[in-house]
Amino acid sequence: MAMLGGVLALTGCAGGAPSALDPAGTGAGRVADLWWVLFWISMAVFAEVMVLLVWALVFRRRRDARVRHGQPLRFVAIAGAGIPLVILVTVYALGLRDLVALGDGPGPEATTIEVTGHRWWWEVRVPGVAGATANELHIPVGEKVRIRLRTADVLHSFWVPQLMPKTDLIAGEVRETWLQTDRAGTYRGQCAEYCGTQHAHMAFLVVAEPRREFDAWLSQLGSPAARPQTDAQRRGQEAFEQGSCAGCHTIRGTGADGRIGPDLSDVGSRWSIGAGAVSNDGGHLGGWIANSQTVKPGNFMPPQPVDAQRLPDLIAYLQSLT
């Protein structure tokens, strides 16, 4: 059993999984501690049951074992109710302590990030900042950051296993949670409430960085997108603005101001395309634009009839938007 614990602890950290057992945030850290307490208690209870069971199997199978007709009510009451009650009261108190701690959000002056769930991507905004981005949010290291959660359609759930347990996005209501970490790094998050066809590909990334880099991110979020530098990129921008793209996507500082799909002003620097569906490189981008339905079947971006010659330009342009 100790071995099992070891396996858990090890595999938890290895393999790059966004593991709740490899916490980096205040919230997830508390829960991980709570988990280990629960784990060892459970192992003890389980061991108790197994010992009794094995004892019976070893000693009560012999043919000469005499059936005893007692009614050991006291044993049943103590083992089945008394001891569990003591354990349960204890863990309940621990659990309550952590519940209160998780509910202890940041004060009014804290940085706030607004996250809106869409089928099947995340819109990220910061109050007072004009721009938006998608599927990636930054937080300053060491601060408690408020995350305000809304949904544009159905229920979703905001979950960054290494930083913070889940909070659902409830249609018609606003929910809040918070993130805090002392460890700079990137943390994978994912939608954890079934939201239809592409619930599987509704991941996001939390980037924790020093305050200065965070401020740079904020100012980038508020400013126009990078201007095209090469001819190809310029042709790409033209294609974007004149094509159907602009009807659904915004690129800040250009004529494209659609609100149906994600803001693409910084799409070149994103960690993925399609909220974790594929990695962000030229090939995947081209595939996505031509027919995102093969990449992320069922998503709400229809296949785009882009000219084969214009496609490289478009890719070049989008990749330049960092």
Binding site: W55, G70, F75
Partner: peptide, 9 residues
């Protein structure tokens, strides 16, 4: 469990 520990399996 008590039943099993008192009976004959």
């Amino acid at each position: 469990l008590a039943t099993m520990m008192l009976g004959r399996l």
